[in-house]
Design a protein around this nucleic acid. Sequence first.
RNA 1: GGGCGCUUAGCUCAGUUGGCUAGAGCGUCUGGUUUACACCCAGAAGGUCAUAGGUUCGAAUCCUAUAGCGCCCACCA
Length: 876
Amino acid sequence: MDFHIEKAYEAKKFEDKIYQKWEKSDAFTPKIDKKKKPFSIAMPPPNATGVLHLGHAIMLAIQDIMIRHHRMLGDSTLWLPGTDHAAIATQNKVEQFLAKKGKTKYDLGRKKFLQEVNKYVKNSQNIIRKQIRKMGSSCDWTRERYTLDKGLTNAVQEIFIKMYNDGLIYRGDRIVNWCPRCESTLANDEVEYKDAKEKLYWIKYGPFTVATTRPETMLGDTAVAVNPNDKRYKKIVGNKSMIPGPLGEFEIRVVADKRVDPEFGSGAVKVTPAHSFDDFEIAQKNDLPVKSVINEKGRMKKNCGKYAKITTLQCRKAVVKDLEKLGLIEKIEDYEHSLSICYRCGTPIEPLISKQWFINVDRTIIKDGKKKKSLKEKSIEVVKNKEIQILPSKFNKIYFNWMENLHDWCISRQIWFGHRIPAWYCKNCDEIVIRKEKPIKCQRCKSTEFKQDPDTLDTWFSSGLWTFSTLGWPKKNKDLKYFHPTSVMETGYDILFFWVARMIIMTTYALDEIPFRTVYLHGLIRDREGRKMSKSRPETCIDPLEMIEKYGTDAVRLSLVIGGTPGNDMRLYEEKIAGYRNFVNKIWNAARFALININKEDLKNNFEQSMIKSFADKWVLTELQKLINEVDRDLEKYRFSEAGTKIYDFFWSKYCDWYLEISKGEHKNPAVLLFVLKTSLKLLHPFVPFITEKLWEFLGEDQLLINERWPKSDKKLIFTEEAKTMDLIHNIISKIRSVRSELRVEPAKKIHAVIYAGKYIDALEQKREALMRLARLESLEIKDKGPKIKKAKAAFVDKTEIYLPLKDLIDLNKEKKRLEKDIGSKEKYIISLESKLKNTGFIKNAPKEVVEKSKTKLENEKENLKKLKKQITELQ
RNA sequence: GGGCGCUUAGCUCAGUUGGCUAGAGCGUCUGGUUUACACCCAGAAGGUCAUAGGUUCGAAUCCUAUAGCGCCCACCA
């Protein structure tokens, strides 16, 4: 055909234009159609900060594969995109910007500060939208949502009120993880740990010696705890005792708690209820007074006398100094332990008592049949009874373990950016009113003055509603009814608890429905050495956008999908991406070849059974049907890497290396060439959407590939016998090539060959041209059988014998060694096969096909061994 | 401390229900201007499937133990 396409595929030239075409065509926007099956994914919303990284790239690649596949299957397919306001992360970013200008959020005030944040968010949302498009993501932009938009905010308030009314949300004084830098609470799982070298101070503590890493908390001590079985202290448990301290004597009580290890130090622990989780629990159990000495900024409170207002660290030094003066320090040791830090800013956590909002996960309230269940129980149940399937399944246990140990969830955050808590306090009588808008009149005191709770909600509270709030809830609209529960939740295993678990909790409660049927967890992308990519080592970081620029999106997508298995981390490096760029280029060139070899009429013709001609045609069609079957199975079971590898292998090693090569000779068949190419493009499309769409256009199609139907494996296109014959021909060609190479025959030199083909004589005759061309033969004799040919190199493929009269070229010694090696390994193999077949257990228990296969294999090998042995005698 | 996982070619990794002489890509080596593609083609070398036992007719695959590596959770005052 007459046309011009560049030799090398240049992704950059086409990708953006192709994406625009898709978007304009409405291909991304599904129609609600009751005759169709719905398939939906709620895209994990990227934070409204920063830029696209590899974590986003892998999730977009995997999800887009599922989405495109299902769209092509004819399902009504929705992929709903959006962004997350990511409260603390975003607020921190903006605070950093302000800090550069020497300002703090307090300089601006709440209202202005939030305006700044929103400006920043708008900007980065635009960047993210562009980048999601860059990845080729076929998501429905008409349904895009934002966790802080009107509808979602309404959903958040609605749920809060419902939970409050059900007694699942309460407000109380609890010990919380407090970040003094963010000046906010953190949920338990927002706390990270790092190893730190600190000091352990041994303090003379009245009748005890106690060890602590935090002497400054001594100012808030109200008890000493000992192990209940510790004989030394049994008598004094319950007593009060006066302890000398830097601010004079103070009173403590002696309590017993089994958590205390009698072996450690003197077996006594000082108890600071207001600033330690364990101590708080001990205090609650024993009804101890709680003395708070550290404030929200990480500084000592007024009640600390001369230490007031200084930071905890300053206070630690001062207290130690004073204790030393008093002779109360017994010793100071180096001590390594894990320090809890804020997951956002790395500041050490300060546990303290604070009035916060909590979700009660243990209260049994959800009616499930006759029984009442807690949020926790319900969330465990839906996974236990397989309503929700988690992949890979090893995460089931991890999920259960986490859920079972879940404590009440602190949902209030003392930051400005986020959903305001819909709680109002009467300025006059402190009455609490829970409602969306400001109340008009206090029911109790008739006051009209209210102030709203200043706090905002944990960002995961709103993302926990993501699958249904984005579909319009609390309105019961068509989208929600049709697309919920969503089909798959695909995300990284690192946010299984943060997010996935919370969606299960919130959705089963709000809708009495699961949020998704399958959870697919991908691994993290690591650098070449298997380390986490981190900004502190920029040389190991791969920027997906830079890679897209260099190698194209299709290559980047393949490199993220192939070679990875669910739940396992994957290493990524540039050469890998370059390798897949090569494959993308191969697709391009295969299409070029096809286009050169077919004419316009061929393009118009539909493929029909009558167009199938040669063995090669039947072989490639058979292989294609096998491929479709396997890919279907793999995709159904979420084995994306396997599916991708198989298509890659078919296309390169079978279609290009064999079928295209054969097509260069007299067996050219444009109909099959084109049909297989088109079907391959369809199979490839979910993986490499851009190049396949572009080539689809070149092939004269006026409809977009994205909307084509997924290929179905067709029994009429499977020719088992002919395919086997073709495999034999391939093997013969490979054998001759291999012999040539071993014997150092120059590639350009054409040689003679004789083949005794037995029953395959006709088949080989039909493929004579291909055989001669691909094996580079000058002449070829094909007979059913004949005498051994002397002075020739012999080779055997199945039951055919190949003779290459090359006597002059053969180095007799080398050839002898080769033959001996060959004979050796054959003999070993034959022995292993024989002993297997003599084994009655094997004959009895193994499936018939396995036994049969072994038998024929043995027969063939025995025969070939005989031939090899003859060869070696003839050499001498 | 509790839980989970990994160990397969020089490197990165597949290996589905236990069943062909364990595969791929990269790298290495030997050659190559063939009707698309050097981002290519042909060929080759390279493995004690971490180790030791066990179950089985048969184990990379299942079980037990050991070693090394990694992750998660809880937390030690």
